[in-house]
């Protein structure tokens, strides 16, 4: 199997695994092996990205103003503990 053939089917291989011929190519070809390793590594690292950024206070201020203007909120009730 040539690299071009392997890489043509790569989305399917990454998604569902390769057939025996493709697996053999993956073991014997350093270029394709490294490519697959990188693509899997990128996907794994992407899953680890967490929401880090906090919106500026003006975002809530704008929401609050619109909620009041649209009559979607009423004053908070007293909380009895």
């Amino acid at each position: 199997m040539k690299c071009a053939e392997f890489q043509r089917d790569l989305p399917l291989i990454l998604d569902a695994g390769g057939n025996p011929e493709q697996e053999e190519h993956l073991r014997s070809c350093a270029v394709c092996h490294d490519l697959v390793a990188d693509l899997r590594y990128i996907a794994e690292q992407a899953k680890l990205l967490v929401p880090m950024r906090e919106p500026a206070p003006r975002v809530w201020n704008g929401i609050e103003e619109r909620l009041k203007r649209e009559g979607l909120v009423k004053p908070a009730q007293e909380r009895h503990l």
Binding site: V50, P51, M52, R53, E54, P55, V59, W60, I63, E64, L67, L72, V73, K74, P75, A76, Q77
Partner: peptide
């Protein structure tokens, strides 16, 4: 759901980072 202002803000504070980051 009953329109209480304080709870809107509480929900916003809980989820703002994820929504804003997206």
């Amino acid at each position: 759901q009953a329109g209480e202002a304080e709870s809107f803000e509480a929900l916003y504070n809980m989820h703002k980072r994820r929504v804003y980051s997206l």
